[in-house]
Design a binder for these strands. Structure first.
Length: 275
DNA sequence: CGCCCGTCCTGTCCGC
DNA sequence: TGCGGACAGGACGGGC
């Protein structure tokens, strides 16, 4: 699930539930989500600490604590951060539970455990963890966006999903943005026209703004995302049948009519004519 | 470098 | 009803 908008929601949860609160207990219900940190060290370094203001970069959530250690979360496909009262029964997928000094709890819930939580000793260590990420998708300017697409070979869908190029977009957002901009996912990123790049950047900003408000990519019927799970998915704009293909192993949906091919690429649409 | 694949995990759904 | 396999909104490392 979690792409930039979801993680932005988790940041909000952490900020409103944990901001300024002291951690009174750390319960690791499944150490399988700890990355590069032991249960013992996590408890030693975090119990007694107070949360500062959390921030987000791409799909990463960064939670500094007042004495220097920093919790660094990634949510994989199924992770979430939820705020609960201490007397609420735990969910079977609650992997790490932080009890706060007001008897509420921050719970890291994750079915698949594809990612997890790290503990950085200081900000320099955080920088190391996030070193390979591109600029955050919410912060990137039109010019930077153009440069970043120009700097990559390959299909625009792969570039949008590449966290080292641009941080925050996942499979759903990428499809949604490409559809909104009318750009086919297999177009070469560096061969897009200036107008197409502007369309993409505008679509990205709008899709992100709506999604952040909803803390998820909203599954509206008027969005491509709202049609993904249909047995016969159709374009919300023209109701034509959507095409489906894998990009980097991820299912990709697009509308061949609304997401036009580059000039000349429809040359082989009628095989047998050309030779 | 770009791209494909397997792998890390768990749960669900589909076909036999 | 049971079981194997594919697949799910992510990321990483290896190999071509």
């Amino acid at each position: 699930m979690p792409e930039l908008p979801d993680v932005e929601g988790f940041r909000e949860v952490l900020s409103s539930c944990g901001g300024g609160r002291r951690v009174t207990n750390v319960e690791v219900r499944d150490p399988g989500v700890l990355r590069g940190v032991t249960v013992r060290r996590l408890r030693n370094e975090v119990v007694g600490e107070r949360f500062g203001e959390p921030r987000r970069h791409g799909k990463w959530l960064i939670a500094p604590m007042d004495d220097g250690p920093v919790l660094v979360w990634h949510f994989g496909m199924t992770g979430a951060l939820v705020c609960a009262c201490a007397d609420e029964p735990p969910d079977p997928h609650d992997r790490v539970v932080l009890t706060l000094d007001d008897e509420r709890q921050l719970r890291y819930r994750d079915q698949r455990k594809l990612q997890g939580v790290q503990l950085a000793g200081n900000e320099a260590a955080v920088g190391h963890i996030l070193a390979d990420l591109g600029p955050d998708a919410l912060a990137v300017s039109g010019e930077d966006f153009r440069r970043l697409l120009d700097g990559r070979r390959g299909a625009v869908k792969n570039v949008l999903m590449d966290q080292s190029a641009l941080a925050g977009l996942g499979n759903l957002l990428s499809d949604e943005i490409l559809w909104r901009a009318g750009v086919a996912p297999d177009r070469a990123a560096r061969e897009l026209s200036a107008a197409e790049v502007r369309e993409l950047h505008t679509a990205m900003r709008r899709v992100l703004a709506s999604s952040v408000r909803a803390a998820r990519v909203p599954p509206r019927r008027s969005w491509l995302t709202g049609r993904r799970d249909d047995p016969d998915p159709r374009c919300p704009r023209c109701e034509g049948r959507l095409r489906s293909r894998r990009f980097s192993g991820r299912r990709t949906l697009w509308c061949p009519r609304c997401q036009s091919r580059p000039p000349g690429a429809d040359r082989d649409v009628h095989p047998g004519k050309g030779g």
